[in-house]
Simulated scan of single mutants.
Amino acid sequence: MRAFVFPGQGSQAVGMGKALAEASGIAREVFQEVDDALGQKLFLLMSEGPESDLTLTENAQPAIMANAIATLRVMEKEGGIRLSEKADFVAGHSLGEYTALCAAGALDLATTAKLLKLRGRSMQAAVPVGIGAMAALLGADTEKAQALADAAAEGEVCAVANDNDPTQVVISGHKGAIERAVALVKDFGIKRGVLLPVSAPFHCSLMQPAADAMAEALATAALRAPVVPVYANVTASPVADPDAIRTLLVEQVTGRVRWRESVAAMFAAGVTDYVECGGKVLGPMIKRIAPDANTNAVITMDDIESVLKGL
């Protein structure tokens, strides 16, 4: 069995998608459609930067999605494959869940781009810069991370935001609480705590204003049943009902990204092969969760040609 997976924020880089667009008219069409939907020259920003603008959440989220969908569309149209025939499930990390839904036909490309633009803008606006923070805990499992978060909170928000793999958990919340947590890591048997260069505390209760904004937008968004089930971040289980998907996408803004559990559940269900479109960050996580899994990162035309041979 096979899953197509899609990366989250942090996988953006200046130059992303440029070589693919030069090599494929299909990719150029995707980038143009996203530009038209957003009314901005996002692909120019992806190609040439500046990096400071690309890193802005409201730009990074649709850019990462567009790059991944362009990669998938090239595979489908130039490689003559159909996702519904080559994948048993799709999944994505945080914003990647929207990419997965687009890939599986639940959301069209323009709607996905607009939703992610709003999601990024709303997440940035939810908490003033400097109030929140996030930190990666290396050598931590969720139990240790939760104990640390509880100890560091002291009345502020300090929550487990991302359960990425058996060796890495991310916490999110008020800046003071996150800094206290980083200072306390050794007391909880955690190897290291590293503050992340993010502009907002994602996936914690401080994001409630963004969740409210997404609830309003998703209520009227055209959302169909996906052609293959999507593993939802907040439940680590497959979902195909449009109304359930809407609810879970709203919960995802403040909820934990249960990536480790999602991959473990997919592997237990028989998924041995994972194709990461538009990035190479999820593959190493997947291998740490399920060492016997086969992973492929698809970014370049050479990657596409290589992976198509095995599909």
Rank of each mutant, 00 (worst) to 15 (best):
A91H: 06
G92W: 02
G92S: 03
H93T: 03
S94W: 09
S94A: 12
G96N: 02
E97M: 12
Y98M: 03
T99Y: 07
T99L: 08
A100Q: 10
A103I: 11
A103E: 08
A104E: 08
A104C: 08
G105N: 09
A106I: 09
L107F: 11
L107Q: 08
L107T: 07
L107R: 03
D108M: 01
L109W: 01
A110T: 04
A110D: 04
T111R: 13
T111G: 06
T112W: 03
A113S: 01
A113K: 01
L115V: 05
L115F: 07
L116P: 14
L116M: 12
K117Y: 15
R119K: 11
R119C: 01
G120W: 09
R121F: 13
M123G: 05
Q124I: 13
A125R: 10
A125D: 14
A125F: 10
V127F: 00
V127Y: 04
G130H: 10
G130Y: 08
I131P: 03
I131E: 15
I131V: 15
I131R: 15
G132R: 01
G132W: 02
A133L: 07
A133P: 05
M134S: 04
L137S: 03
L138G: 13
L138P: 06
G139T: 15
D141Y: 01
T142D: 12
E143S: 14
E143V: 14
A145P: 01
A145G: 03
A147D: 07
A147H: 03
A149V: 13
D150S: 13
D150V: 12
A151T: 12
A152W: 07
E154I: 05
E154K: 15
G155L: 02
G155N: 02
V157G: 07
V157W: 02
C158A: 06
A159C: 12
A159I: 03
A159H: 04
V160A: 01
N162A: 09
N162C: 12
N162R: 12
D163E: 09
D163W: 09
D165S: 09
